[in-house]
Design a protein around this nucleic acid. Structure first.
Length: 424
RNA sequence: GGAGAAAUGGCAGAGUGGUCGAAUGCGGCGGUCUUGAAAACCGUUUUCCGCCCGCCGGCGGAACGGGGGUUCGAAUCCCUCUUUCUCCGCCA
């Protein structure tokens, strides 16, 4: 959510920047400015009347104490009309507040100055590339056949228990999954992140705080009886730890890492290219989250990108880092780097991580603020997060890229975790 | 699930209708003293919105778990929701 101050002061700048995201904001901005000036006018009037009301009330109080009942009664006469007007202004103010909020919420975050406009994912900018594409035989199997061949992930069984997109990991498949989670967490902790295990069910306020609500309502599993949501990413509970929190500047950056299962309805996005592990309703992910000082948040973003790059390197996966163009970026992000790994049998790049700086966009919803040492004023912090990493496509790439006639080779870095070198 | 009690500032804890944004203590910050520190003493210390305002600041309004109500006036009375604690029941 953009701040009303920014909108007041830099209307045209905002309008220009949002064009990079192919978002036409003219009408919304005009409406916001109009609502805002009406709101302020009403508040001034209401404040003045309440001040008057408070004055009279105090007067009545002191008259009562002096036992001057008749004077007190006549003073009361003056309050009835005032009270009614205050009530009406209060209602008007409430209406304007919520209307204003509704409009502001419709505006996406401003893209960082390095973001190009673009019209699709084709226009994402390759930042760098690493690792070597493996040479696999022409008859290399895609992962959905490999998992059957070695009986390590079972979609049919998941279908029986729940439905499509809820696989069951078995034997070495389960161990591989658990090993990757531990590996990612350990790497994060070594890099200075504090591990947390948050709830995977959140309330409406949390969903709103990080921006999934109301925009992505249909993408989350909603437990209507309790009005809870299954989290689509650990970003939601972990970032919301800092909702309504005022941090000290010297405590920044705050760095958290969390493993959670993630749940996505993926309504409407099923189709080609989503076979096997490419798209699931439930999947595992390790997420890194930082709350940073606004002056250093892009340094934090670089650090996070380097961290994720280290992970894919250690796993020996060919990867590329893409800076998303405006039209491919999320509503809430100011700058996003996507990580893709090469999937040898599918011969495609698979997105395995998205690392973003949200600047103050989430923080404004969350009311996540900080105070400079010795300072009095609070400022909005910057929030960042990134997958480090999402498991299913990593598993798919490891299976496909490392297949050999004698089985699937486990990456060196994972062997201490799996305890075996081959899936065979 | 049943019965009872409670929710106040960073923390502890007073406050049962009027001058209470809130005593007091602790903690924090600034200062005096000291070579330095401690102790002592003095001062200061919630957040949001609006107006004036370059900044400092000033003025007004709101907020005592959330929401609603009674009243000229609510931390204080009423309703409701949530949470916590105690006892009972059940349970991984």
């Amino acid at each position: 959510m953009l701040t009303i101050n920014l909108i007041r002061e830099k209307r045209d700048f905002i309008s220009d920047r949002l064009k990079i995201k192919n978002f036409n904001s003219e009408e919304i901005l005009d409406k916001i400015l109009e609502l805002d000036s009406r709101r302020r006018e009403i508040q001034s009037r209401s404040d003045t009347m309440q001040a008057e009301m408070n004055r009279i009330s105090k007067e009545i109080g002191s008259l009562m104490m002096q036992n001057r009942k008749t004077e007190a009664e006549s003073a009361k006469e003056n309050t009835y009309r005032l009270k009614e007007e205050i009530r009406e202004l209060g209602e008007e103010l409430g209406r304007l507040d919520s209307e204003l909020r509704e409009e502001i919420i419709r505006l996406p975050n401003l893209p960082h100055e390095s973001v190009v406009r673009g019209s699709s994912s084709e226009d994402n900018v390759k930042v760098r590339e690493g690792g070597e594409k493996p040479s696999v035989p022409a008859d290399a199997l895609p992962h959905w056949e490999l998992i059957r061949k070695y009986d390590i992930i079972d979609f049919d069984l998941g279908n029986k228990l729940t439905g499509a997109g809820f696989p069951v990991y078995k034997g070495k498949g389960a161990k591989l999954e658990r090993s990757l989670i531990s590996f990612f967490l350990d790497e994060g902790v070594s890099a200075g992140y504090t591990e947390v295990i948050p709830p995977i069910v959140v309330n409406e306020d949390s969903g709103f705080g990080t921006g999934q609500l109301p925009d992505m309502e249909g993408q989350m599993y909603h437990m209507t009886l309790d009005n809870f949501y299954l989290i689509p990413t650990a970003e939601v509970p972990v970032t919301n730890i800092y909702r309504d929190v005022i941090l000290n500047a010297e405590d920044l950056p705050v760095k958290n890492i969390a493993y959670t299962p993630c749940f996505r309805r993926e309504a409407g996005s099923w189709g080609a290219h989503v076979r096997g592990l490419n798209r699931l309703h439930q999947f595992d992910k390790v997420e890194i989250v930082q709350i940073a000082h606004p002056d250093h948040s892009y340094k934090a973003l670089d650090e996070m990108v380097n961290h994720v790059e280290g992970l894919v390197k250690k796993l020996g996966l060919p990867y590329r880092i893409m800076r998303l163009c405006g039209s491919d970026m999320s509503f809430t992000s100011a700058l996003t780097y996507d990580f893709e790994v090469w999937s040898a049998a599918q011969e495609r790049w698979l997105e395995v991580s998205s690392v973003s700086n949200f600047e103050s966009f989430q923080a404004n919803r969350l009311k996540c603020r900080f105070r400079e040492k010795g300072g009095k004023q609070t400022r909005l912090a910057h929030t960042l997060n990134g997958s480090a990493l999402a498991l299913p496509r990593i598993v798919a790439a490891i299976l496909e890229n490392n297949q050999t006639p004698s089985g699937i080779r486990i990456p060196q870095a994972l062997i201490p975790y799996t305890g075996f070198e081959m899936i065979d």
